[in-house]
């Protein structure tokens, strides 16, 4: 077991984790934050995307001990005080959600993309979202959601 200190959604946790547990295991099993999903466990679907020290990562490919000292944002950390984050609003309004399993990762990747590049081109949206797989929507409404989130950011 490894002792780690990790900040998740603004709360500092001191945890004992197995050395072979993943960050995803830690988030879901130790913290009970099941909004982060496991789709493939191999870094190919992006359903487990979380933001670690400002950058998106596949939580399934990060070991829990590697998260020691890191600051992590999961989907549960996005809305504050009952207010939806503009990206969450955009996905709801534009129909960027169907089954919802990819949605947490999709929203966090969008947030990270827009934090870095507040006004991405269509091409940049497609390229930077490639790590988030969605089988339901065919992506059209996801692109529309991201563009709507851009417009929300402008106002």
């Amino acid at each position: 077991m490894k002792q780690i200190t990790v900040t998740v959604n603004g709360t500092v946790y001191e945890l004992q984790v197995k050395s072979w547990a993943t960050l995803l295991d830690m988030i879901r099993d130790d913290l009970g934050l099941t909004g982060t999903k496991e789709g493939c466990g191999l870094g190919e679907c992006g359903a487990c995307t979380v933001i670690m020290d400002g950058k998106t990562v596949n939580a399934c490919l990060v070991l829990a001990p590697e998260a020691d000292g890191k600051e992590i944002i999961t989907i549960e950390g996005l809305s504050r005080g009952g207010q939806f984050h503009p990206v969450q609003e955009a996905f709801m309004e534009q129909g960027g959600i169907q089954c919802g399993f990819c949605t947490p990762g999709m929203i966090l990747s969008t947030k990270a993309l827009l934090d870095e590049n507040p006004n991405p081109t269509d091409e940049e949206i497609r390229r930077d979202m490639a790590g988030n797989f969605c089988r339901c929507t065919g992506y059209t409404k996801i692109f529309e959601s991201i563009k709507a989130a851009v417009r929300k950011g402008d106002t």
Binding site: G35, S79, Q88, F91, M92, G100
Partner: peptide, 12 residues
């Protein structure tokens, strides 16, 4: 918008 959208965008 979907009736389940709020649960889905918040990870709930």
């Amino acid at each position: 918008p979907r009736v389940d959208a709020p649960e889905k965008v918040t990870g709930q």
